[in-house]
Each structure stands twice: as C-alpha cells, then as structure tokens.
Design a protein around this nucleic acid. Sequence first.
DNA 1: CGAATATATTTATATATTTGCATTTGATAA
DNA 2: TTATCAAATGCAAATATATAAATATATTCG
Lengths: 99, 99
Amino acid sequence: MKVNELNPEKLERAANMLKAIAHPMRIAILGYLEDGKKLTVTEIHELLNIEQSTTSHHLGILKDKGVLSSKREGKNTYYFLRHCSLSNIVDCVTKCTMG
Amino acid sequence: MKVNELNPEKLERAANMLKAIAHPMRIAILGYLEDGKKLTVTEIHELLNIEQSTTSHHLGILKDKGVLSSKREGKNTYYFLRHCSLSNIVDCVTKCTMG
DNA sequence: CGAATATATTTATATATTTGCATTTGATAA
DNA sequence: TTATCAAATGCAAATATATAAATATATTCG
C-alpha cells in the first residue's frame, strides 16, 4: 500500500472515517449491520438500549464520515453500510483485541 | 462475526484500539511500519516532520492500545506492528475514502 | 564520572467529543 | 386538520484529546 503517498487531506479523511467507527456503540451498530442488513433508528436504539437522540447522533456521525448510508421509507429511515468491506475493520480489530 | 456477543469491555477495547489508529499522523506511522518494518522514534519524527515529544506521544498511544510493540536496542527504541493484519485496517479505510 | 544522544513524561492550553434533554421536523393515518 | 409515530437538531455540561514547550530519564561513550 502507498499510505505515504497520501497527502494530508487524504490522511485526514481516512482518520475521520476511522474516528467515526472508533466508539463502542458505533462498533456495535456496525456489528448489527453486517451482511448488508438495514435497520431503522428505532430498531438500533432498542437493540443497544440507548436514547433515541443519542442513536441518531451516532448514526449521523457514521453517515457523515461515509461509513453508512441511509434511505427513508415512510416514517422510517433505514441505515446500512456504504462499503460492505468496512465490516472487515470491525472484524480485524475485534480479533486483534481478543488475544 | 459475533460483534454483538461482545460485552461492553470488549467493545471498549476494540474502540480504544481503533481510536488509537484514527489520527492522521498515526495512520501515517502505520503506513511506514507495514511489512514488519521497525523504526525508531527519531526516524519517525524526521519522516513525519513533527516534534520528537509529539512523536513519542503518538507512539505511546499506539503501544498502549495494543497496536504497536517496541523493543529497546541501545539508545534506540524500535517500534513495529503487534499484529501485521492491522495494516489491513489502514488499507481498507484508505480505499474506502478514495472513492 | 560527565557529556551527548535518544526517548519519555509532565504540564498547560486549546479543541473536540459524548450524552441526554427538550424541541423540531417529517410522514402517515384518523 | 389534528394526533401520532419516527427521526433529526440545538444546546449545555462533563469528559476526553491534541499539541508543544520544558523537563526528566536512560543509555552509551570518552
């Protein structure tokens, strides 16, 4: 890989995407969204047992940094992984922290 | 993957490891350490053109969170990836942020 | 030992993040 | 229209993080 051909803006964008993922709740969210699953804000906030607004906040961060996409359907908004390969990051880091 | 069998402590550890990586300078550091390369603090601080103390700080964070290991040899301390698979994270996130 | 080099730590300041509450906006149905 | 459910936003307090300057520690060499 050519990380060091990365200019500061690219490093910044990569860091921002990782920073978006680097939070316990947000890692858990990504865990629920593997294999192309789509979930609503309410579903996630009930699964994680955290406030609706907090959930929305986390989802907004993940969307803003390019980790998730969303699609409104009626009253619900479904969130899902923008790049399915992003599951690998969570996979890799959980494996590395197990040992 | 079984992210959601992860208990809060494991999520926390995974998040901390990602948080350690999620910084432009620290991503650049990991870029220099791919393929098992080992570099000293001074080499890194010169490569990145940042303060020695700042460099040491960043390396300390990466080591503390389990991303890097270090080995002292004489006056120098060499830093290197603890799990070579961690390069994949940087790889994946840089690819995802390119598009 | 004292000097030089490499690394780490401490400290202070600036900046950013997390969280929940209250509110608002959006969509549907009665 | 009004009521209701779903999601997003603004705000504020608490907490965490980043940076650099100064200082401290460790190692080697003369």
